[in-house]
Design a protein around this nucleic acid. Structure first.
Lengths: 193, 193
DNA sequence: ATTTATTTCGACTAATTTCGTCGAATAGTC
DNA sequence: GACTATTCGACGAAATTAGTCGAAATAAAT
């Protein structure tokens, strides 16, 4: 017999696909069921509601996002290299998510409070990652920062600011050059001279 | 005051955009209204129903398609050139429509009989265009065809067959080579030797 | 084999969404 | 001011959809 979790995984994967195309509101349970080759009631055997499926999808996206950041981190890199890699990988991963987020951006999702929770949790984790890079840089004398905690928050916040144009379809070239600028500014504002 | 037809045009244009993204079923009148910066009732002032808007969109697509074929026709070309141009322009225009058709392909549109009517009308017109090319070719001795009417139907039918892979996402390279083959076959089966 | 637990599904209902209507309000014209 | 053209909010009817329930089917356990 197939493991229950595997079935759930499969449903989430199918649902992610449909949510990416039609957003939350326009995606129906019947569509998810049919695409999963199941009856609608069978879907409810695994998930209590449409929101619960959506939550699983969002959590999976967030987890993949985090893993990509971790995977890209080479422990042997200098802190400066780590910082640059982090920024670049972050944007590349975000681009992959852009479809998904632009599909759901018109749905009113304010009533789904788990989204805010997930966002905060992963925010926190990314800030931790960033801070440990900064701390390492300070320790080996490469960076010069008074309050690494505040600096980490500031940098992550700045990076998040750069997501926004992704979802509103700003020209990519413009985006790349902005990214270069940001990296440049980060480095020359942060490197010991 | 703005002309009534201009407002209708604007609504059709907005609607085309939304239909392309969500298909017929998932597109709501409210969305069309909001995107047109109007109340929903105002839309009904110009169109009697959602179907009527959709019909206008389909007719516009068909008309643009036809105009592109006409525009691409250079009267000074040889019939052989005209035939080749027709085939190429047809596929290029079809590619532009592929989004629209793949968006609505999952909706059950069998109950909208005007679609069939429009299709038939433009079918007829394209066959006429094709036949006049063939006739011209026969008259100046370039082509050798017994029944140009039947031949025109056969060729247009073959071309329509090549639309299908467009909507199901076959590899483009494969498509291009198929197109080359078709043109090649058409010519060497049709040119007087 | 029989019982028990797991999984699927069709049919149904309640809640929501959406179409389309109507009458009133607003703006533009004579 | 009267008259027409246009917009809109509120509403009911119809359709769609989320979620339930019990029964059927399938697999596991005894």
């Amino acid at each position: 017999m197939l493991d229950k979790d595997e079935v759930k995984e499969a449903i989430v994967s199918v649902a992610r696909h449909i949510f990416s195309r039609f957003g939350f509101r326009k995606t129906t349970m019947d569509e998810i069921a049919i695409a999963s080759r199941k009856g609608k009631s069978s879907i409810y055997y695994y998930f209590a509601s449409k929101e619960e499926i959506f939550q699983a999808v969002v959590e999976k996206e967030a987890e993949i996002f985090k893993q990509e950041l971790i995977k890209a981190t080479n422990p042997n890199d200098t802190p400066a290299q780590k910082l640059k890699t982090h920024v670049l990988v972050r944007m590349r991963s975000m681009e992959k998510l852009a479809n998904f987020y632009s599909a759901i951006k018109d749905d009113f999702l304010g009533h789904l409070d788990f989204i805010e929770k997930i966002r905060k949790k992963y925010d926190q984790e990314e800030i931790q990652m960033m801070e440990s890079i900064l701390v390492e840089g300070v320790e080996n004398g490469m960076f010069e920062i008074d309050d690494t905690s505040l600096a980490a928050i500031a940098i992550v916040t700045a990076l998040k600011g750069m997501e926004i144009p992704l979802f509103w379809g700003v020209e990519e070239k413009d985006l790349e050059s902005r990214l270069d600028h940001l990296i440049h500014i980060l480095f020359h504002g942060v490197m010991k001279h």
